[in-house]
Computed example of a mutant assay.
Amino acid sequence: MTHGLKMSKLFAKAHYQTTDSIHPFWLKSSESPLNDDISIVTVVTPGTWSDLERLADYWKGHISVTLCMDTNVEHQNRIREQYNKHAELSKRVDIHLSESVRPGLSVLLPQNADRNLARLFAQTDFIMEMPSNMVPATDIRRTLETNKAMFDSLLRDGDVLVVPMFGFPVQESTLYKLPFTKSRLLELVNDDAMFLLDKHWKPNTGPTDLNVWKYATTLYPVSRYDFHYEPIVIESKSVQPWCAERFLDSRAACLFSSYLTGGEFWVLPDDYMVELPEIEKSELSAFDHVIENRLYAKFYWEQCVHHARQLDALGLWKGKRSQHIRTQCSRVIQNWGKGIIGKPE
C-alpha cells in the first residue's frame, strides 16, 4: 500500500493529492515520552514558527505539531535548520509535515484535520490541543503527576480537564509580564490588566466561570456548558471523539461530541494558560465564517440525534451518561420523529 493511500484511508474526506503530501514524523524528537505523560497538540506554519519555539521553552514535555507549508525545498531546509538548532525542539517536538502546492489555507485539509493529524501521531496517552500562541503559565504536568490516580481515572472514563485561558486587554505590545501564580493573576484581573478568555463570550463571563475559579481549591464541573464552548482541555488521545473535519476551523466541534456522550468538563483550580498576540491572523473570510456557522447549526442537530440514538440503543438513556444530552438537546429530541426516543427528563 502506497503512502498516499494509507493517508487517504486515515483522512477519508480529504482529497487524495492532499493526503499524499502528509509526512508523519518529518522531524522526530530525540527523546521518547512515557506513555502516561501528556503531549501538547498544535498546528503551526513557517510564519508562526517562533510561537512553537516559545511554547517548547515553556512546556518541558512532548509536543506533536502539524506544520503546514509549501513544497519549496529551500524553505523546508530552513525550517529543518531552525529545528536542529533549538535544543528543546529537537529533544521533545515531533513535526508532521503537511505540504501545500499553494500558499494560504487549503480547504482540502482544514485545520480540524491538521489537529487530528497531530493528535494521531502524538506519542502519549493524554493530549492537550491548543493554539500555538498560548503558553502554559503554571506547571500543568506537575499537577497531573501529583494527582495521577484521580486524573487518569477521569480521563480514561471520558471526562476532560479544562485549563482556563486568560488574555490581555490590549494585544499590541510585544512585551508582557506573565503571572506565574494564581494570586498574581487574580491581582491583574482585579486591576483589569488581564481577563478570563472564553471565545464567543465577553471577558470574564464565559462558562469556565471566573467567580467560581477565583475561590476554587479543587476540581469543579462546568455548569453552564454551551455548544459554542471551546476551552483548552486535557483529554485521552484514544477515548475522545475526533474533530469533525467538515469544518475549516472549529475547536468547539472537537468537544461537543465529548460532552454529548456524557463526558464531564472539570476545571483545574490552580493552573491556566495565557494568550499572547497572534503573529498570523486567521485567513478565513467573512463568507467562510457564515458557512462555518451554518454548518455548525446543522452539526448540532445531527450530533444530538446521533448520540441520542446510540445511548438509547445501548440502554443508557435513563442513566447518568445521557444527562448532558437530555439537557442540551431537549428541543431537538422532542421534535425529531415526534419524540420517538421519549421526552427528556
Score class of each variant (00 low, 15 high):
53 E>W: 05
85 K>V: 04
85 K>P: 00
148 K>C: 14
232 I>H: 05
267 V>F: 10
86 H>S: 14
271 D>L: 10
7 M>N: 11
138 T>Q: 08
122 A>P: 06
278 E>V: 15
94 D>Q: 09
36 D>W: 09
169 P>N: 07
93 V>A: 03
334 Q>G: 11
253 A>Y: 08
212 V>I: 08
72 N>F: 03
222 V>A: 11
151 F>H: 14
58 Y>R: 04
285 S>C: 00
44 V>A: 09
44 V>I: 15
316 L>T: 04
156 R>H: 05
1 M>Y: 10
266 W>N: 01
57 D>P: 08
310 Q>C: 03
66 T>G: 00
101 V>F: 12
136 P>C: 09
261 T>C: 07
84 N>G: 05
193 A>K: 15
311 L>F: 07
105 L>S: 09
102 R>C: 05
335 N>P: 07
63 I>G: 01
53 E>K: 13
333 I>H: 00
30 S>M: 04
286 A>Y: 06
283 E>V: 06
191 D>I: 00
298 K>Q: 15
265 F>V: 10
154 L>S: 04
59 W>M: 07
249 D>S: 14
252 A>F: 07
11 F>V: 09
59 W>E: 02
322 S>W: 02
209 D>G: 04
80 R>K: 15
279 I>N: 08
318 K>S: 06
167 G>V: 09
292 E>G: 00
95 I>F: 05
81 E>T: 13
266 W>M: 08
46 P>M: 01
